[in-house]
Amino acid sequence: MKLVKLKFKAWRWRDHGLLLVVLLLLVFLTSTAYSWTRENIDQLTKWRNSRLSPVIMVPGSSATENRFDSLVDKLNETSPVKHSLLKVKVYSSGKITYSGSIRAKDNEPVIVVGFENNQDGYENIKKQAKFFDMAFAQLQNRYNFNNYKAFGHSNGGLILTAFLEKYASQYDVTLKRLMTLGTPYNFNEATLSHKTQMLADFIKSKKKLPTSLNVYSIAGTEDYDSDGLVPLGSVEAGKYIYQGQVQHYTEITVTGGNAQHSDLPQNQQIVSLIQTDLLDKVDTN
Protein backbone atom coordinates (compact mmCIF):
# COMPACT_ATOMS: atom_id res chain seq x y z
CA MET A 1 0.00 0.00 0.00
CA LYS A 2 1.22 3.42 -0.87
CA LEU A 3 1.96 5.48 2.20
CA VAL A 4 -0.54 8.22 2.77
CA LYS A 5 1.09 11.58 2.60
CA LEU A 6 -0.18 14.28 4.89
CA LYS A 7 -0.94 17.49 3.14
CA PHE A 8 -1.12 20.46 5.43
CA LYS A 9 -0.55 23.57 3.42
CA ALA A 10 -2.01 26.88 4.37
CA TRP A 11 -3.62 28.35 7.44
CA ARG A 12 -7.38 28.50 6.95
CA TRP A 13 -9.22 30.82 9.30
CA ARG A 14 -12.52 29.15 8.70
CA ASP A 15 -11.43 25.72 9.94
CA HIS A 16 -8.35 26.33 12.04
CA GLY A 17 -9.91 29.36 13.70
CA LEU A 18 -12.90 27.19 14.58
CA LEU A 19 -10.50 24.78 16.27
CA LEU A 20 -9.08 27.62 18.35
CA VAL A 21 -12.58 28.61 19.46
CA VAL A 22 -13.25 25.02 20.51
CA LEU A 23 -9.99 25.02 22.45
CA LEU A 24 -10.87 28.26 24.26
CA LEU A 25 -14.29 26.88 25.12
CA LEU A 26 -12.61 23.79 26.53
CA VAL A 27 -10.27 25.88 28.69
CA PHE A 28 -13.23 27.87 30.01
CA LEU A 29 -15.17 24.65 30.75
CA THR A 30 -12.16 23.18 32.54
CA SER A 31 -11.93 26.08 34.96
CA THR A 32 -15.64 25.97 35.81
CA ALA A 33 -15.57 22.17 36.00
CA TYR A 34 -12.95 22.27 38.73
CA SER A 35 -15.00 24.29 41.19
CA TRP A 36 -18.13 22.36 40.29
CA THR A 37 -16.62 18.96 41.03
CA ARG A 38 -15.04 20.07 44.35
CA GLU A 39 -18.36 21.45 45.55
CA ASN A 40 -20.23 18.37 44.36
CA ILE A 41 -17.85 16.05 46.23
CA ASP A 42 -18.23 18.09 49.43
CA GLN A 43 -21.98 17.80 49.20
CA LEU A 44 -21.86 14.08 48.48
CA THR A 45 -19.63 13.55 51.52
CA LYS A 46 -21.95 15.50 53.80
CA TRP A 47 -25.01 13.79 52.47
CA ARG A 48 -23.44 10.39 52.90
CA ASN A 49 -22.21 10.96 56.44
CA SER A 50 -25.47 12.38 57.67
CA ARG A 51 -27.42 9.29 56.76
CA LEU A 52 -28.45 6.36 58.91
CA SER A 53 -26.30 5.97 62.02
CA PRO A 54 -27.82 3.38 64.32
CA VAL A 55 -27.08 2.69 67.98
CA ILE A 56 -26.33 -0.99 68.38
CA MET A 57 -26.88 -2.30 71.90
CA VAL A 58 -25.70 -5.61 73.30
CA PRO A 59 -27.11 -6.94 76.58
CA GLY A 60 -25.08 -8.85 79.17
CA SER A 61 -25.21 -12.51 80.14
CA SER A 62 -28.55 -14.09 81.04
CA ALA A 63 -30.32 -11.15 79.35
CA THR A 64 -32.30 -11.24 76.11
CA GLU A 65 -32.86 -8.86 73.24
CA ASN A 66 -35.69 -7.35 75.32
CA ARG A 67 -33.25 -6.13 77.97
CA PHE A 68 -33.22 -2.50 76.83
CA ASP A 69 -36.96 -1.99 76.23
CA SER A 70 -37.39 0.30 79.20
CA LEU A 71 -34.12 2.09 78.50
CA VAL A 72 -35.32 2.96 74.97
CA ASP A 73 -38.67 4.06 76.40
CA LYS A 74 -36.84 6.37 78.79
CA LEU A 75 -34.61 7.71 76.00
CA ASN A 76 -37.68 8.50 73.90
CA GLU A 77 -39.51 10.16 76.81
CA THR A 78 -37.23 13.15 76.83
CA SER A 79 -35.65 13.02 73.40
CA PRO A 80 -36.93 15.39 70.68
CA VAL A 81 -36.50 12.64 68.07
CA LYS A 82 -37.98 9.22 68.68
CA HIS A 83 -35.67 6.28 68.14
CA SER A 84 -37.30 3.19 66.69
CA LEU A 85 -36.33 -0.17 68.18
CA LEU A 86 -35.29 -3.21 66.17
CA LYS A 87 -34.54 -6.38 68.08
CA VAL A 88 -32.34 -9.06 66.60
CA LYS A 89 -31.88 -12.53 68.04
CA VAL A 90 -29.08 -14.81 66.92
CA TYR A 91 -29.62 -18.52 67.53
CA SER A 92 -26.72 -20.87 68.11
CA SER A 93 -27.71 -22.61 64.87
CA GLY A 94 -26.90 -19.38 63.03
CA LYS A 95 -30.53 -18.50 62.46
CA ILE A 96 -31.25 -14.79 62.89
CA THR A 97 -34.71 -13.43 63.69
CA TYR A 98 -35.96 -9.86 63.78
CA SER A 99 -38.73 -8.17 65.75
CA GLY A 100 -39.73 -4.54 65.73
CA SER A 101 -38.74 -2.32 62.85
CA ILE A 102 -36.84 0.78 61.80
CA ARG A 103 -39.16 3.64 60.98
CA ALA A 104 -38.62 5.29 57.63
CA LYS A 105 -36.60 8.50 57.96
CA ASP A 106 -35.37 7.51 61.41
CA ASN A 107 -31.64 8.16 61.12
CA GLU A 108 -30.75 6.96 64.59
CA PRO A 109 -32.64 3.76 65.38
CA VAL A 110 -31.70 1.50 68.26
CA ILE A 111 -30.81 -2.05 67.26
CA VAL A 112 -30.51 -4.58 70.09
CA VAL A 113 -28.65 -7.79 69.32
CA GLY A 114 -29.36 -10.67 71.72
CA PHE A 115 -28.16 -14.26 71.65
CA GLU A 116 -29.72 -17.63 72.33
CA ASN A 117 -26.47 -18.58 74.04
CA ASN A 118 -26.24 -15.87 76.68
CA GLN A 119 -23.97 -17.71 79.09
CA ASP A 120 -21.08 -16.19 81.01
CA GLY A 121 -17.42 -17.15 80.51
CA TYR A 122 -14.64 -16.34 78.04
CA GLU A 123 -15.44 -19.24 75.68
CA ASN A 124 -19.04 -18.05 75.41
CA ILE A 125 -17.95 -14.42 74.91
CA LYS A 126 -15.86 -15.53 71.93
CA LYS A 127 -18.82 -17.41 70.47
CA GLN A 128 -21.13 -14.47 71.06
CA ALA A 129 -18.68 -12.11 69.33
CA LYS A 130 -18.87 -14.43 66.31
CA PHE A 131 -22.67 -14.46 66.46
CA PHE A 132 -22.62 -10.67 66.72
CA ASP A 133 -20.44 -10.52 63.63
CA MET A 134 -23.01 -12.60 61.73
CA ALA A 135 -25.82 -10.29 62.79
CA PHE A 136 -23.72 -7.22 62.01
CA ALA A 137 -22.99 -8.45 58.50
CA GLN A 138 -26.69 -8.94 57.85
CA LEU A 139 -27.66 -5.59 59.35
CA GLN A 140 -25.02 -3.73 57.40
CA ASN A 141 -26.11 -5.43 54.21
CA ARG A 142 -29.75 -4.67 54.92
CA TYR A 143 -29.52 -1.04 56.01
CA ASN A 144 -26.25 -0.03 54.39
CA PHE A 145 -25.08 2.31 57.16
CA ASN A 146 -21.49 3.52 57.11
CA ASN A 147 -21.21 4.59 60.74
CA TYR A 148 -22.81 3.56 64.01
CA LYS A 149 -22.61 3.85 67.78
CA ALA A 150 -22.39 0.89 70.16
CA PHE A 151 -23.58 0.35 73.69
CA GLY A 152 -22.80 -2.72 75.79
CA HIS A 153 -24.13 -3.58 79.22
CA SER A 154 -22.00 -5.90 81.36
CA ASN A 155 -20.73 -8.77 79.17
CA GLY A 156 -22.21 -6.96 76.16
CA GLY A 157 -19.21 -4.62 76.41
CA LEU A 158 -16.90 -7.62 76.27
CA ILE A 159 -18.67 -8.98 73.18
CA LEU A 160 -18.30 -5.59 71.46
CA THR A 161 -14.62 -5.36 72.43
CA ALA A 162 -13.97 -8.85 71.04
CA PHE A 163 -15.87 -7.94 67.85
CA LEU A 164 -13.86 -4.74 67.42
CA GLU A 165 -10.55 -6.52 67.79
CA LYS A 166 -11.37 -9.56 65.69
CA TYR A 167 -14.06 -8.81 63.09
CA ALA A 168 -14.77 -5.09 62.71
CA SER A 169 -11.88 -4.28 60.38
CA GLN A 170 -13.41 -6.25 57.51
CA TYR A 171 -16.31 -3.78 57.25
CA ASP A 172 -16.18 -0.39 55.61
CA VAL A 173 -18.12 0.99 58.57
CA THR A 174 -16.92 3.37 61.29
CA LEU A 175 -17.79 2.97 64.94
CA LYS A 176 -18.03 6.55 66.15
CA ARG A 177 -18.57 6.05 69.86
CA LEU A 178 -18.64 3.08 72.20
CA MET A 179 -20.19 3.13 75.65
CA THR A 180 -19.81 0.20 78.00
CA LEU A 181 -21.77 -0.01 81.21
CA GLY A 182 -20.50 -2.01 84.18
CA THR A 183 -18.41 -4.13 81.85
CA PRO A 184 -16.11 -6.56 83.72
CA TYR A 185 -12.99 -6.32 81.57
CA ASN A 186 -11.20 -8.53 84.10
CA PHE A 187 -14.27 -10.64 84.98
CA ASN A 188 -14.58 -10.93 88.75
CA GLU A 189 -11.01 -10.01 89.59
CA ALA A 190 -10.79 -6.78 91.55
CA THR A 191 -7.07 -6.20 91.00
CA LEU A 192 -4.74 -6.51 88.05
CA SER A 193 -2.51 -8.94 89.92
CA HIS A 194 -4.90 -11.63 88.72
CA LYS A 195 -5.06 -10.95 85.02
CA THR A 196 -7.61 -13.19 83.29
CA GLN A 197 -6.85 -14.83 79.94
CA MET A 198 -9.51 -12.64 78.31
CA LEU A 199 -8.00 -9.37 79.52
CA ALA A 200 -4.53 -10.53 78.42
CA ASP A 201 -5.91 -11.35 74.95
CA PHE A 202 -7.73 -8.02 74.70
CA ILE A 203 -4.57 -6.11 75.62
CA LYS A 204 -2.51 -8.16 73.17
CA SER A 205 -4.78 -7.22 70.24
CA LYS A 206 -5.45 -3.63 71.31
CA LYS A 207 -3.62 -2.28 68.22
CA LYS A 208 -6.55 -3.47 66.10
CA LEU A 209 -8.95 -1.05 67.79
CA PRO A 210 -9.87 1.94 65.62
CA THR A 211 -7.88 5.04 66.55
CA SER A 212 -10.72 7.40 65.72
CA LEU A 213 -13.01 5.86 68.34
CA ASN A 214 -14.34 7.59 71.47
CA VAL A 215 -14.91 5.21 74.37
CA TYR A 216 -16.88 5.82 77.54
CA SER A 217 -16.67 3.23 80.29
CA ILE A 218 -19.29 3.71 82.97
CA ALA A 219 -19.06 2.00 86.36
CA GLY A 220 -21.83 1.88 88.90
CA THR A 221 -21.03 1.61 92.60
CA GLU A 222 -23.14 0.65 95.56
CA ASP A 223 -20.21 0.87 97.92
CA TYR A 224 -16.65 2.05 97.32
CA ASP A 225 -15.45 -0.86 95.20
CA SER A 226 -18.32 -2.72 93.48
CA ASP A 227 -21.76 -2.37 91.91
CA GLY A 228 -22.84 -5.37 93.91
CA LEU A 229 -21.76 -7.83 91.24
CA VAL A 230 -18.80 -6.49 89.23
CA PRO A 231 -15.76 -5.13 91.09
CA LEU A 232 -14.87 -1.54 90.25
CA GLY A 233 -11.31 -2.68 89.55
CA SER A 234 -12.56 -5.00 86.80
CA VAL A 235 -14.46 -2.17 85.05
CA GLU A 236 -11.46 0.11 85.37
CA ALA A 237 -9.22 -2.52 83.78
CA GLY A 238 -10.74 -1.37 80.47
CA LYS A 239 -8.19 1.43 80.41
CA TYR A 240 -5.40 -1.08 79.74
CA ILE A 241 -7.21 -2.02 76.54
CA TYR A 242 -8.45 1.32 75.25
CA GLN A 243 -6.30 4.03 76.77
CA GLY A 244 -3.53 5.23 74.44
CA GLN A 245 -5.04 3.40 71.47
CA VAL A 246 -8.40 5.04 70.82
CA GLN A 247 -8.88 8.78 70.44
CA HIS A 248 -10.43 9.36 73.86
CA TYR A 249 -11.12 6.99 76.71
CA THR A 250 -13.35 8.39 79.43
CA GLU A 251 -14.18 6.71 82.73
CA ILE A 252 -17.37 7.69 84.51
CA THR A 253 -18.51 6.43 87.90
CA VAL A 254 -22.17 6.67 88.81
CA THR A 255 -23.33 6.34 92.45
CA GLY A 256 -26.60 6.82 94.28
CA GLY A 257 -29.94 5.11 93.68
CA ASN A 258 -30.27 2.46 90.96
CA ALA A 259 -26.50 2.04 90.75
CA GLN A 260 -26.67 -1.72 91.32
CA HIS A 261 -25.32 -3.75 88.38
CA SER A 262 -28.65 -4.91 87.00
CA ASP A 263 -30.40 -1.60 87.59
CA LEU A 264 -27.82 0.40 85.64
CA PRO A 265 -29.65 0.43 82.27
CA GLN A 266 -32.69 2.01 83.93
CA ASN A 267 -30.66 4.58 85.87
CA GLN A 268 -31.79 8.12 84.96
CA GLN A 269 -28.22 9.37 85.31
CA ILE A 270 -27.06 6.87 82.72
CA VAL A 271 -29.95 7.65 80.36
CA SER A 272 -28.71 11.26 80.41
CA LEU A 273 -25.15 10.15 79.76
CA ILE A 274 -26.31 8.11 76.75
CA GLN A 275 -28.15 11.14 75.42
CA THR A 276 -25.28 13.55 75.82
CA ASP A 277 -22.29 11.35 75.07
CA LEU A 278 -23.41 8.44 72.89
CA LEU A 279 -26.21 9.72 70.68
CA ASP A 280 -25.71 12.19 67.86
CA LYS A 281 -26.32 15.82 68.68
CA VAL A 282 -29.78 16.80 67.61
CA ASP A 283 -29.87 19.64 65.17
CA THR A 284 -32.60 21.85 66.62
CA ASN A 285 -32.63 24.25 63.69
Binding site: L26, T30, Y34, T37, N40, I41
Partner: peptide, 25 residues
Amino acid sequence: AYPVPLGTPGVLVAFIGTGGHFSAL
Protein backbone atom coordinates in the same frame (compact mmCIF):
# COMPACT_ATOMS: atom_id res chain seq x y z
CA ALA B 1 -14.90 7.54 40.94
CA TYR B 2 -16.95 10.71 41.35
CA PRO B 3 -20.10 11.27 39.31
CA VAL B 4 -19.95 13.48 36.25
CA PRO B 5 -22.86 15.55 34.90
CA LEU B 6 -24.55 14.25 31.76
CA GLY B 7 -23.07 15.70 28.59
CA THR B 8 -19.69 16.56 30.10
CA PRO B 9 -17.15 17.02 27.28
CA GLY B 10 -15.32 13.69 26.89
CA VAL B 11 -11.86 15.09 27.60
CA LEU B 12 -13.09 16.58 30.87
CA VAL B 13 -14.84 13.46 32.21
CA ALA B 14 -11.68 12.13 33.85
CA PHE B 15 -10.78 15.56 35.25
CA ILE B 16 -14.18 16.05 36.87
CA GLY B 17 -14.56 12.39 37.85
CA THR B 18 -11.31 12.47 39.81
CA GLY B 19 -12.38 15.59 41.67
CA GLY B 20 -10.07 17.84 39.62
CA HIS B 21 -6.83 15.85 39.42
CA PHE B 22 -4.75 17.62 36.80
CA SER B 23 -2.87 14.41 36.04
CA ALA B 24 -6.15 12.94 34.75
CA LEU B 25 -6.70 16.00 32.56
